[in-house]
Amino acid sequence: MTNTTDKHINPDKIIPTMHPVFAQRTSYRAASPHQHLWEILDHVFDPELPGLTIWDLGVLQDIQVTQSQDDFGQLKPRQLKLELITVVITLTYSGCPAVDAMTQDIIQALNNAGFEQVKVKVSLAPAWNTDMISPAGKQQLLALNIAPPNEDDHPDCPVCGSSNTEVISQFGSTSCKSMHRCQHCAEVFDYFKSL
């Protein structure tokens, strides 16, 4: 006897679509006068998720630039290096240790590009959620064999696409993931929990 529910691929769940929350982030970024800085930070990745940038993850929230002053209190607007760059990020899970690595990588990336005064501010609000993840970020999760977040918290197998999966553990290698097993192809995989 064949089990028809065994392989049931729902393409809507596999192909990520843009969430309004992400669309809002995109238009905020597009309106920023500091496009070159956003682009530099497109090369900063989550230390635990190779290839997923802090922008795609939704951690990078804002970039502010203020002119710093010289010893006499005079503005020196023409000298780029005297600009103070404040990068605002938000925490994924409150205890996530990756935030320290990300902070260092942000400072390093901007220093390498010639910006010496960089400050990273961790903002508590708005509270991060998985809707902030970009479509590209969700694709990258799939490429890493991590099922991207979905609303009913029942992931499809990132390898074969079957929805016939079960939970093994509610926590995986990091706070943001849980462990699942595909009952169709027997693959054990991580799921990026919907938050």
Partner: peptide, 20 residues
């Protein structure tokens, strides 16, 4: 093992809360 990881992750959530 899975339960070990889970409890440690719950602990991590609380340490994060404590830090803030």
């Amino acid at each position: 093992l899975e339960e070990d990881i889970a409890l440690s992750n719950v602990a991590l959530d609380y340490i994060g809360r404590a830090r803030m």
